[in-house]
Amino acid sequence: MSGTVTSDPYERSAEYLDIMIAAAWEPLAPALADVLSRVRAVDGAVVDLGAGSGRGVRAIRDALPQAPVFAVEPSAAMRAVLLARVYEDDELRGRVTVVPGDAAAEWPDGVRAVVALNMIGHLPPGRRRELWERAARHLAPGGLLVFNATGPFVPVEVERVRMAGVVIGEMEYEGWAAARPTGADEITWRMEYDVLHRGRRLTGASVEYRWWVAEVDVLAGEAAEAGLVLRRTGDPSLGLCVLERAAEPTSISS
């Protein structure tokens, strides 16, 4: 099956994504919970941008009991998984609003946190800056935005590599990833998913999508223009970054 760039690359891959990312979320969920513990005393909802299949939503629930969550997801295919995960959990069903939209979707006023994991690369530079500016306007005092920045940080070729594999029943599911430079600050990922039975491929899917890359220092500079300070946090391998409003200068009277 040939891969093509589509408006919703997850339309064909949503079947596999949740199980492919499960292992990656084992360290990421507690790290996210640790960051969110800093805003337990802050009022307001949490906005989860690119909520995907809802693994981040569960981490938010565990870290911030009672906080309303707005789970924003543009892909209808991924929302199907997200909605099922929310509906089957009584607590999530009462607290989580699933919003069909992207980073430009409407936010409630005075949010305590914005979670943007595994999605910043989907935004071209102009829309990235819009996100920083919007966060600076909408975050409640003491609120934060958390995202992860992982390589590549410049447009380079990434050789095809097996990123995940799981066994469910008699089926084995594999995910493969490769990338090629397609612009001055952009790469195109090619993701392939195979379903194997006793070593024989039965079915699968492949898809390509654009991904904008930038060094963390560049992201910090963009955020600073919006009045936000970037700090790295946690295990460096996770690439977690926190944005908070810059402290107001203190006036000194003579």
Results as ranks from 00 to 15, higher is better:
residue 182 T to H: 03
residue 144 L to E: 03
residue 29 A to L: 10
residue 188 T to D: 11
residue 142 G to S: 06
residue 18 D to R: 11
residue 245 R to K: 11
residue 92 L to K: 07
residue 7 S to H: 04
residue 187 I to R: 07
residue 46 V to T: 05
residue 155 P to L: 13
residue 174 E to Y: 05
residue 48 D to L: 02
residue 169 G to A: 11
residue 200 R to C: 08
residue 245 R to I: 01
residue 230 L to N: 01
residue 247 A to I: 00
residue 12 R to K: 10
residue 219 L to A: 08
residue 64 L to N: 02
residue 148 N to Y: 09
residue 77 A to N: 06
residue 140 A to L: 04
residue 183 G to K: 07
residue 246 A to N: 00
residue 132 W to C: 08
residue 253 S to M: 05
residue 220 A to Y: 00
residue 49 L to G: 11
residue 31 A to T: 09
residue 236 P to W: 04
residue 209 Y to F: 15
residue 237 S to V: 11
residue 82 L to F: 06
residue 117 L to D: 06
residue 161 V to N: 02
residue 134 R to N: 08
residue 238 L to C: 03
residue 140 A to M: 08
residue 237 S to H: 09
residue 29 A to N: 11
residue 231 R to V: 11
residue 229 V to K: 11
residue 177 A to F: 02
residue 242 V to H: 04
residue 34 D to A: 15
residue 249 P to Q: 00
residue 11 E to T: 01
residue 26 E to Q: 15
residue 225 E to R: 13
residue 145 L to H: 05
residue 250 T to E: 15
residue 84 A to V: 03
residue 66 Q to S: 14
residue 63 A to C: 02
residue 167 V to F: 05
residue 164 A to C: 06
residue 14 A to F: 07
residue 173 Y to F: 15
residue 52 G to E: 14
residue 78 M to V: 04
residue 24 A to H: 13
residue 217 D to P: 09
residue 39 V to C: 09
residue 87 Y to V: 07
residue 118 N to P: 00
residue 181 P to V: 01
residue 53 S to T: 15
residue 82 L to A: 06
residue 235 D to I: 04
residue 94 G to E: 15
residue 79 R to S: 02
residue 50 G to W: 10
residue 247 A to Y: 00
residue 15 E to A: 13
residue 152 P to S: 12
residue 96 V to N: 07
residue 87 Y to C: 10
residue 217 D to H: 14
residue 227 G to W: 09
residue 137 R to E: 15
residue 206 S to H: 06
residue 106 E to A: 15
